[in-house]
Design a binder for these strands. Structure first.
Length: 471
RNA sequence: GGUCCCAUCGUCUAGCGGCCUAGGACGCUGGCCUCUCACGCCGGAGACACGGGUUCGAUUCCCGUUGGGACCA
């Protein structure tokens, strides 16, 4: 193993809420890159904001990652466990004269900023405290990084090429707040360099933070890692994706009946491509992923396409898995009671006939209900249209024919129905639709023979009788 | 406001100077199939933001404009 060249990447979410779509995409690209290069994927929890961080969020994030199959090799590390490390690094910069104490209060800073603006000067920190000879009594200082004020800092980005920042534009970053906590930009650098991260892959909302981070690496005498800033994911209104755009948390997608592979496939194609290919297995993604084909422009999240992919993966899914997932949802809704589960093989067959019409597992569950429940309610419109007086005699006759039918199978049913309509001189639709309404309550269902076969003789006859009674 | 980023069909994207009368996918739409709805199959509408350059030749390179976005404040 060539340690020197081993790729090490990390995903570093803040546990201040659910695991969001944008975060998942960042995690996914990191993970794909790591797996592609047989490197390490490290999970780090950025929980220094203790007022907003919760254990519950951490749990939800880990659960979401597991659900998607994004396994990590190291961690989860927590920033709150690493306070001494940040402290040591602050001390080092202080000792080397690369950082200094700042006693300015937010009010003072704000006043001077406004004044600078009013006088037409850039609102940059004026380094007032740098020349301070002794501490100001009664105040706890923050620590600022003494950043170079000449020259340029160039970010070499794997996606964007080189991006140049004038050092003059960057002011002396606070690295430790007066409450003793390290600031975000500082903690990230200390973490990434102590964890030997080789590639920092994150959203491009961090691009502007990058030059100051590079300066910190240099102050510590380290070579900065490679950077790759991914384009943002937007809502349909082209604003940054947020809660008001509907479901944004991974757990919501799970609850909505999406398969993890659909979400992974969809997200992988948001900002990345491999020619005309749309469908990718995880192995293919790992094999084909590279930054060469990651785009620069932000991408709008498109529910419809996700739905299409979900449908695709439902159709591809293993029947036993679908049966299990279906059962899980039915139990959750109390449609099926524990201890009274339907036969596994039967459930799998049921799932099998429902997949064509199911874009989500929830749709599948809905369509499964008439097959499980003892009684159903007929849709009023469907009933009015198909369960009419003139149909009643036909249904009665049909019951008489079905009762002795054995075996009660698709092919036998098809034969029976064909004989029946030939004898009656009617089209199949004339009888199939009323039967469909009687059996499922509505006008939409899988093929009528599939429905009848799976429902079984007893239920079929009972329902047609019930429908007749309601006419 | 300052800094930085971005710009191909409604959306995701292919395109890395001539293969482009711009390809694929979702969505939309016409038709076929058909016991309903779907699935599937066949077809259609639909884009290089604008203006300058560079070049024999620009979607592709450069500059500007416009329009989005992010970060900081």
């Amino acid at each position: 193993m060539t340690t020197r060249n081993t790729v090490r990447v990390r995903f570093a979410p803040s546990p201040t809420g659910a695991l969001h779509i944008g975060g998942v995409r960042t995690a996914l690209f990191n993970w794909l890159f790591a797996r592609h290069h047989q490197g390490a994927f490290i999970l780090r929890i950025e929980d220094t904001d203790q007022t907003r961080s919760t254990e519950e969020s951490i749990r939800i994030i880990l659960e979401g990652m597991k659900w998607l199959g994004l396994d990590w090799d190291e961690g989860p590390f927590r920033q709150t466990d690493r306070k001494e490390i940040y402290q040591a690094h602050v001390d080092r910069l202080l000792k080397e004269g690369k950082a200094y104490y700042c006693y300015c209060t937010p009010e003072e800073l704000d006043a001077r900023r406004k004044q600078a603006l009013a006088e037409g000067r850039p609102p940059k920190y004026d380094r007032k405290c740098r020349s301070l000879k002794s501490p100001i009594e009664g105040r706890t200082p923050a620590v600022r990084f003494l950043s170079p004020d000449e020259g340029q800092t160039i970010v070499q980005d794997l996606i964007r090429g080189s991006v140049t920042f004038e050092n003059q534009q960057l002011d002396d970053l606070i690295i430790r707040r007066s409450d003793g906590f390290p600031t975000y930009n500082f903690a990230v650098v200390v973490d990434d360099l102590t964890m030997n991260i080789t590639h920092v892959i994150r959203g491009d909302d961090h691009l502007n933070n990058t030059p100051r981070q590079i300066q910190l690496y240099e102050a510590f005498g380290y070579k900065p890692p490679e950077f790759a800033h991914l384009p943002m994911i937007l809502g349909p209104d082209k604003a940054k994706l947020s809660k008001r755009h509907g479901a944004t948390a991974v757990t919501e997608y799970k609850d909505l009946g999406y398969l993890p592979e659909a979400l992974v496939n969809y997200l992988s194609r948001l900002g990345w491509s491999a020619g005309d290919q749309e469908i990718f297995s995880v192995d293919e993604l790992i094999q084909k992923f590279s930054f060469d084909h990651v785009g620069k422009a932000a991408a709008v999240f498109n529910q419809e396409k996700l739905l299409w992919l979900n449908h695709h993966y439902i159709q591809q899914a293993d029947p036993s898995r679908l049966g299990d997932l279906l059962l899980e949802l039915l139990l959750k809704d109390g449609i099926v009671i524990t201890g009274n589960e339907p036969d596994t093989a039967w459930l799998q067959r049921l799932a099998g006939i429902l997949i064509e019409r199911s874009h989500t597992l929830i749709e599948m569950k809905q369509a499964a209900i008439p097959f499980i429940l003892d009684t159903i309610t007929l849709d009023e419109k469907a009933k009015a249209k198909h369960l009419t007086q003139d149909i009643a005699p036909l249904l009665k006759e049909l019951i008489a024919i079905l009762k002795p039918l054995n075996p009660f199978t698709h092919s036998e049913l098809e034969k029976t129905f064909n004989d029946f309509i030939t004898r009656k001189g009617i089209k199949l639709g004339k009888i199939a639709q009323p039967v469909r309404v009687a059996l499922t309550g509505g006008t939409v269902s899988p093929g009528i023979y599939e429905v009848i076969e799976l429902m079984g003789k007893d239920k079929t006859i009972k329902r047609i009788e019930a429908a007749l009674a309601s006419i």
